[in-house]
Design a protein around this nucleic acid. Structure first.
Lengths: 147, 147
DNA sequence: GTCGTCACATCGACCATCAATATAGTTAGG
DNA sequence: CCTAACTATATTGATGGTCGATGTGACGAC
Protein backbone atom coordinates (compact mmCIF):
# COMPACT_ATOMS: atom_id res chain seq x y z
CA UNK A 1 0.00 0.00 0.00
CA UNK A 2 1.55 3.26 -1.08
CA UNK A 3 1.33 6.45 0.92
CA UNK A 4 -1.30 7.88 -1.37
CA UNK A 5 -3.64 4.91 -1.27
CA UNK A 6 -5.23 6.03 1.96
CA UNK A 7 -5.79 9.50 0.59
CA UNK A 8 -7.44 8.06 -2.49
CA UNK A 9 -9.77 5.97 -0.42
CA UNK A 10 -10.74 9.04 1.55
CA UNK A 11 -11.40 10.93 -1.65
CA UNK A 12 -13.41 8.04 -3.02
CA UNK A 13 -15.47 7.80 0.16
CA UNK A 14 -16.26 11.51 0.01
CA UNK A 15 -17.21 11.29 -3.66
CA UNK A 16 -19.38 8.25 -3.03
CA UNK A 17 -21.20 10.00 -0.20
CA UNK A 18 -21.66 13.03 -2.40
CA UNK A 19 -22.98 10.91 -5.26
CA UNK A 20 -25.57 9.20 -3.08
CA UNK A 21 -26.56 12.52 -1.60
CA UNK A 22 -26.86 14.17 -5.00
CA UNK A 23 -28.98 11.37 -6.41
CA UNK A 24 -31.28 11.33 -3.44
CA UNK A 25 -31.51 15.09 -3.09
CA UNK A 26 -32.55 15.55 -6.69
CA UNK A 27 -34.65 12.41 -6.77
CA UNK A 28 -36.76 12.17 -9.81
CA UNK A 29 -39.61 9.79 -9.96
CA UNK A 30 -40.06 10.21 -13.68
CA UNK A 31 -37.30 7.84 -14.72
CA UNK A 32 -35.27 5.35 -12.75
CA UNK A 33 -31.49 5.52 -12.96
CA UNK A 34 -31.39 2.49 -15.22
CA UNK A 35 -34.13 3.82 -17.45
CA UNK A 36 -32.43 7.19 -17.82
CA UNK A 37 -29.08 5.56 -18.45
CA UNK A 38 -30.55 3.32 -21.11
CA UNK A 39 -32.11 6.27 -22.90
CA UNK A 40 -28.76 8.06 -22.74
CA UNK A 41 -27.02 5.01 -24.17
CA UNK A 42 -29.49 4.90 -27.04
CA UNK A 43 -29.04 8.61 -27.58
CA UNK A 44 -25.27 8.28 -27.78
CA UNK A 45 -24.96 4.96 -29.54
CA UNK A 46 -28.01 4.93 -31.76
CA UNK A 47 -30.27 1.91 -32.29
CA UNK A 48 -28.92 -1.31 -30.81
CA UNK A 49 -29.80 -4.80 -29.78
CA UNK A 50 -31.76 -5.47 -26.67
CA UNK A 51 -29.19 -7.88 -25.32
CA UNK A 52 -26.33 -5.49 -26.06
CA UNK A 53 -28.19 -2.89 -24.06
CA UNK A 54 -28.59 -5.33 -21.20
CA UNK A 55 -24.84 -5.95 -21.07
CA UNK A 56 -24.01 -2.26 -21.34
CA UNK A 57 -26.40 -1.31 -18.56
CA UNK A 58 -25.36 -4.16 -16.34
CA UNK A 59 -28.81 -5.72 -16.01
CA UNK A 60 -30.01 -9.13 -17.04
CA UNK A 61 -31.65 -9.66 -20.38
CA UNK A 62 -35.12 -10.26 -18.87
CA UNK A 63 -34.85 -6.98 -17.02
CA UNK A 64 -33.96 -5.23 -20.25
CA UNK A 65 -36.88 -6.90 -22.01
CA UNK A 66 -39.18 -5.50 -19.34
CA UNK A 67 -37.54 -2.10 -19.48
CA UNK A 68 -37.83 -1.89 -23.26
CA UNK A 69 -41.46 -2.95 -22.97
CA UNK A 70 -42.06 -0.03 -20.64
CA UNK A 71 -40.13 2.37 -22.86
CA UNK A 72 -42.20 1.22 -25.82
CA UNK A 73 -45.44 1.52 -23.88
CA UNK A 74 -44.51 5.08 -22.90
CA UNK A 75 -43.51 6.02 -26.43
CA UNK A 76 -39.85 6.61 -25.57
CA UNK A 77 -38.41 3.84 -27.73
CA UNK A 78 -39.50 1.35 -30.37
CA UNK A 79 -38.73 -2.27 -31.10
CA UNK A 80 -37.66 -3.11 -34.62
CA UNK A 81 -36.35 -6.10 -36.56
CA UNK A 82 -32.75 -6.74 -37.38
CA UNK A 83 -32.74 -7.61 -41.10
CA UNK A 84 -29.58 -9.68 -40.66
CA UNK A 85 -30.76 -11.72 -37.66
CA UNK A 86 -34.41 -12.39 -37.19
CA UNK A 87 -33.93 -13.37 -33.57
CA UNK A 88 -32.69 -9.93 -32.64
CA UNK A 89 -34.68 -6.89 -31.58
CA UNK A 90 -33.28 -3.48 -32.40
CA UNK A 91 -34.24 -0.79 -29.90
CA UNK A 92 -34.52 2.76 -31.21
CA UNK A 93 -34.98 5.97 -29.26
CA UNK A 94 -37.96 8.07 -30.34
CA UNK A 95 -38.04 11.85 -30.50
CA UNK A 96 -40.22 11.80 -27.41
CA UNK A 97 -37.58 9.72 -25.66
CA UNK A 98 -34.91 12.20 -26.58
CA UNK A 99 -37.03 15.05 -25.28
CA UNK A 100 -37.67 13.31 -21.98
CA UNK A 101 -33.96 12.75 -21.60
CA UNK A 102 -33.09 16.37 -22.28
CA UNK A 103 -35.74 17.76 -19.98
CA UNK A 104 -34.67 15.40 -17.23
CA UNK A 105 -31.08 16.54 -17.51
CA UNK A 106 -32.10 20.17 -17.41
CA UNK A 107 -34.38 19.65 -14.46
CA UNK A 108 -31.80 17.79 -12.44
CA UNK A 109 -28.99 20.18 -13.27
CA UNK A 110 -31.15 23.09 -12.17
CA UNK A 111 -31.93 21.44 -8.86
CA UNK A 112 -28.34 20.45 -8.20
CA UNK A 113 -27.14 23.94 -9.15
CA UNK A 114 -29.41 25.35 -6.47
CA UNK A 115 -27.80 23.04 -3.95
CA UNK A 116 -24.34 24.04 -5.11
CA UNK A 117 -25.21 27.63 -4.27
CA UNK A 118 -24.80 26.70 -0.64
CA UNK A 119 -21.07 26.44 -1.14
CA UNK A 120 -18.79 29.32 -0.31
CA UNK A 121 -16.93 31.00 -3.15
CA UNK A 122 -13.74 29.11 -2.53
CA UNK A 123 -15.38 25.71 -2.33
CA UNK A 124 -17.45 26.42 -5.41
CA UNK A 125 -14.33 27.32 -7.33
CA UNK A 126 -12.60 24.03 -6.59
CA UNK A 127 -15.76 22.08 -7.36
CA UNK A 128 -16.12 23.85 -10.69
CA UNK A 129 -12.49 23.09 -11.39
CA UNK A 130 -13.09 19.40 -10.71
CA UNK A 131 -16.25 19.11 -12.80
CA UNK A 132 -14.30 18.69 -16.01
CA UNK A 133 -12.15 15.95 -14.57
CA UNK A 134 -15.16 14.07 -13.22
CA UNK A 135 -16.84 14.45 -16.58
CA UNK A 136 -13.83 12.94 -18.31
CA UNK A 137 -13.90 10.08 -15.84
CA UNK A 138 -17.53 9.40 -16.66
CA UNK A 139 -17.00 9.53 -20.37
CA UNK A 140 -13.89 7.37 -20.46
CA UNK A 141 -15.65 4.52 -18.77
CA UNK A 142 -15.75 1.76 -21.39
CA UNK A 143 -19.15 0.66 -20.15
CA UNK A 144 -20.41 4.20 -19.78
CA UNK A 145 -23.62 4.88 -17.96
CA UNK A 146 -24.19 8.58 -17.42
CA UNK A 147 -27.58 10.04 -16.69
CA UNK B 1 -29.55 35.52 -15.08
CA UNK B 2 -26.01 36.38 -14.12
CA UNK B 3 -23.01 35.53 -16.17
CA UNK B 4 -22.06 32.66 -13.89
CA UNK B 5 -25.44 30.95 -13.87
CA UNK B 6 -24.72 29.14 -17.11
CA UNK B 7 -21.42 27.94 -15.79
CA UNK B 8 -23.06 26.66 -12.63
CA UNK B 9 -25.60 24.74 -14.62
CA UNK B 10 -22.82 23.15 -16.61
CA UNK B 11 -21.01 22.22 -13.44
CA UNK B 12 -24.20 20.83 -11.96
CA UNK B 13 -24.90 18.79 -15.08
CA UNK B 14 -21.42 17.31 -14.98
CA UNK B 15 -21.71 16.49 -11.27
CA UNK B 16 -25.11 14.93 -11.79
CA UNK B 17 -23.82 12.76 -14.59
CA UNK B 18 -20.87 11.77 -12.44
CA UNK B 19 -23.13 10.95 -9.50
CA UNK B 20 -25.34 8.69 -11.58
CA UNK B 21 -22.32 7.04 -13.11
CA UNK B 22 -20.66 6.52 -9.73
CA UNK B 23 -23.76 5.00 -8.19
CA UNK B 24 -24.34 2.69 -11.10
CA UNK B 25 -20.70 1.73 -11.54
CA UNK B 26 -20.36 0.70 -7.94
CA UNK B 27 -23.84 -0.77 -7.71
CA UNK B 28 -24.37 -2.72 -4.60
CA UNK B 29 -27.22 -5.10 -4.28
CA UNK B 30 -26.81 -5.51 -0.57
CA UNK B 31 -28.56 -2.29 0.45
CA UNK B 32 -30.68 0.15 -1.50
CA UNK B 33 -29.76 3.83 -1.41
CA UNK B 34 -32.63 4.57 0.95
CA UNK B 35 -31.76 1.66 3.22
CA UNK B 36 -28.12 2.68 3.41
CA UNK B 37 -29.02 6.30 3.97
CA UNK B 38 -31.39 5.37 6.77
CA UNK B 39 -28.73 3.28 8.49
CA UNK B 40 -26.32 6.21 8.15
CA UNK B 41 -28.88 8.58 9.63
CA UNK B 42 -29.36 6.24 12.59
CA UNK B 43 -25.61 5.98 12.98
CA UNK B 44 -25.16 9.72 13.06
CA UNK B 45 -28.28 10.76 14.93
CA UNK B 46 -28.81 7.83 17.25
CA UNK B 47 -32.17 6.21 17.96
CA UNK B 48 -35.10 8.15 16.57
CA UNK B 49 -38.74 8.00 15.71
CA UNK B 50 -39.92 6.13 12.70
CA UNK B 51 -41.83 9.10 11.35
CA UNK B 52 -38.88 11.45 11.87
CA UNK B 53 -36.81 9.03 9.85
CA UNK B 54 -39.42 9.05 7.10
CA UNK B 55 -39.29 12.85 6.87
CA UNK B 56 -35.50 12.92 6.94
CA UNK B 57 -35.21 10.30 4.22
CA UNK B 58 -37.90 11.84 2.10
CA UNK B 59 -40.13 8.77 1.96
CA UNK B 60 -43.66 8.28 3.19
CA UNK B 61 -44.36 6.85 6.59
CA UNK B 62 -45.69 3.55 5.21
CA UNK B 63 -42.47 3.15 3.24
CA UNK B 64 -40.45 3.74 6.37
CA UNK B 65 -42.59 1.27 8.29
CA UNK B 66 -41.82 -1.33 5.64
CA UNK B 67 -38.14 -0.41 5.59
CA UNK B 68 -37.84 -0.66 9.38
CA UNK B 69 -39.62 -4.01 9.25
CA UNK B 70 -37.00 -5.25 6.81
CA UNK B 71 -34.17 -3.80 8.89
CA UNK B 72 -35.57 -5.50 11.97
CA UNK B 73 -36.02 -8.78 10.15
CA UNK B 74 -32.40 -8.62 8.99
CA UNK B 75 -31.12 -7.73 12.44
CA UNK B 76 -29.84 -4.29 11.44
CA UNK B 77 -32.16 -2.25 13.65
CA UNK B 78 -34.68 -2.73 16.42
CA UNK B 79 -38.03 -1.19 17.27
CA UNK B 80 -38.49 0.14 20.79
CA UNK B 81 -41.02 2.09 22.78
CA UNK B 82 -40.85 5.77 23.50
CA UNK B 83 -41.51 6.03 27.25
CA UNK B 84 -42.87 9.54 26.79
CA UNK B 85 -45.25 8.77 23.94
CA UNK B 86 -46.74 5.37 23.59
CA UNK B 87 -47.75 6.02 20.00
CA UNK B 88 -44.17 6.40 18.90
CA UNK B 89 -41.69 3.76 17.75
CA UNK B 90 -38.03 4.42 18.40
CA UNK B 91 -35.73 2.84 15.84
CA UNK B 92 -32.26 1.88 17.02
CA UNK B 93 -29.30 0.71 14.97
CA UNK B 94 -27.82 -2.60 16.07
CA UNK B 95 -24.13 -3.43 16.08
CA UNK B 96 -24.76 -5.63 13.07
CA UNK B 97 -26.34 -2.66 11.31
CA UNK B 98 -23.32 -0.53 12.06
CA UNK B 99 -21.03 -3.22 10.74
CA UNK B 100 -22.98 -3.57 7.54
CA UNK B 101 -22.82 0.17 7.06
CA UNK B 102 -19.08 0.32 7.60
CA UNK B 103 -18.34 -2.59 5.32
CA UNK B 104 -20.55 -1.14 2.63
CA UNK B 105 -18.70 2.18 2.78
CA UNK B 106 -15.35 0.46 2.62
CA UNK B 107 -16.40 -1.72 -0.26
CA UNK B 108 -17.82 1.14 -2.28
CA UNK B 109 -14.91 3.46 -1.60
CA UNK B 110 -12.49 0.77 -2.72
CA UNK B 111 -14.36 0.26 -5.95
CA UNK B 112 -14.66 3.95 -6.67
CA UNK B 113 -10.99 4.51 -5.84
CA UNK B 114 -10.12 1.94 -8.49
CA UNK B 115 -12.13 3.92 -11.01
CA UNK B 116 -10.45 7.15 -9.94
CA UNK B 117 -7.14 5.58 -10.85
CA UNK B 118 -8.09 6.12 -14.47
CA UNK B 119 -7.60 9.84 -14.05
CA UNK B 120 -4.39 11.54 -14.98
CA UNK B 121 -2.29 13.07 -12.22
CA UNK B 122 -3.57 16.56 -12.86
CA UNK B 123 -7.23 15.58 -12.92
CA UNK B 124 -6.82 13.48 -9.83
CA UNK B 125 -5.31 16.42 -8.01
CA UNK B 126 -8.24 18.72 -8.72
CA UNK B 127 -10.70 15.99 -7.82
CA UNK B 128 -8.95 15.36 -4.52
CA UNK B 129 -9.01 19.08 -3.88
CA UNK B 130 -12.75 19.18 -4.46
CA UNK B 131 -13.58 16.19 -2.29
CA UNK B 132 -13.57 18.27 0.88
CA UNK B 133 -15.90 20.86 -0.58
CA UNK B 134 -18.33 18.21 -1.81
CA UNK B 135 -18.19 16.56 1.57
CA UNK B 136 -19.08 19.83 3.25
CA UNK B 137 -21.95 20.26 0.84
CA UNK B 138 -23.27 16.85 1.79
CA UNK B 139 -22.95 17.45 5.48
CA UNK B 140 -24.48 20.91 5.54
CA UNK B 141 -27.65 19.67 3.95
CA UNK B 142 -30.31 20.13 6.63
CA UNK B 143 -32.05 16.99 5.45
CA UNK B 144 -28.81 15.10 5.05
CA UNK B 145 -28.74 11.76 3.30
CA UNK B 146 -25.21 10.48 2.74
CA UNK B 147 -24.45 6.87 2.09
C1' DG C 1 -64.70 13.54 28.93
C1' DT C 2 -64.75 14.62 23.97
C1' DC C 3 -62.90 15.77 19.75
C1' DG C 4 -59.34 16.80 16.71
C1' DT C 5 -54.76 15.49 15.80
C1' DC C 6 -50.74 12.48 15.76
C1' DA C 7 -47.92 8.04 15.15
C1' DC C 8 -47.80 3.94 13.36
C1' DA C 9 -49.57 -0.28 10.95
C1' DT C 10 -52.07 -2.41 7.27
C1' DC C 11 -53.88 -3.00 2.65
C1' DG C 12 -53.91 -2.92 -2.28
C1' DA C 13 -51.59 -1.44 -6.20
C1' DC C 14 -47.71 -0.46 -8.97
C1' DC C 15 -42.82 -0.65 -10.83
C1' DA C 16 -38.28 -2.73 -11.07
C1' DT C 17 -35.27 -6.26 -10.61
C1' DC C 18 -33.51 -11.11 -10.62
C1' DA C 19 -32.82 -16.32 -11.67
C1' DA C 20 -34.69 -19.96 -14.09
C1' DT C 21 -36.91 -21.57 -17.97
C1' DA C 22 -39.38 -21.61 -22.49
C1' DT C 23 -39.54 -20.47 -27.39
C1' DA C 24 -38.00 -19.26 -31.72
C1' DG C 25 -34.23 -18.51 -34.86
C1' DT C 26 -29.28 -19.45 -36.45
C1' DT C 27 -25.23 -22.03 -37.52
C1' DA C 28 -21.80 -25.71 -37.86
C1' DG C 29 -20.83 -30.77 -38.47
C1' DG C 30 -21.88 -34.65 -40.55
C1' DC D 1 -30.15 -31.42 -45.99
C1' DC D 2 -30.56 -32.50 -40.81
C1' DT D 3 -29.75 -32.16 -36.53
C1' DA D 4 -27.55 -30.54 -32.38
C1' DA D 5 -25.67 -26.70 -30.08
C1' DC D 6 -25.97 -22.13 -29.53
C1' DT D 7 -28.12 -17.42 -29.40
C1' DA D 8 -31.79 -13.75 -28.73
C1' DT D 9 -35.75 -12.71 -26.70
C1' DA D 10 -39.96 -13.66 -23.93
C1' DT D 11 -42.23 -15.55 -19.91
C1' DT D 12 -42.73 -16.91 -15.12
C1' DG D 13 -42.37 -16.52 -10.23
C1' DA D 14 -40.11 -14.40 -6.52
C1' DT D 15 -38.46 -10.30 -3.81
C1' DG D 16 -38.04 -5.53 -2.81
C1' DG D 17 -39.44 -0.83 -2.61
C1' DT D 18 -42.63 2.72 -3.13
C1' DC D 19 -47.13 5.01 -2.87
C1' DG D 20 -52.04 6.59 -1.36
C1' DA D 21 -55.84 5.45 1.43
C1' DT D 22 -57.44 3.87 5.56
C1' DG D 23 -57.59 1.87 10.30
C1' DT D 24 -56.37 1.97 15.30
C1' DG D 25 -54.88 3.51 19.38
C1' DA D 26 -52.73 7.43 22.03
C1' DC D 27 -52.29 12.30 23.09
C1' DG D 28 -53.79 16.91 24.46
C1' DA D 29 -56.57 21.15 24.56
C1' DC D 30 -60.64 22.54 26.03
Amino acid sequence: MTASTGARLTTAAALDAFAAWAIRSTADRELSLTTASTLATLDRGGPQRLSDLAVREGVTQPSMTALVTRLERDGLATRGDDPTDRRAVIVTLTDAGREVLVSRRTRRATRLAALLDRLGDEDRAVVEAAAGALSRLTLTDPSRGES
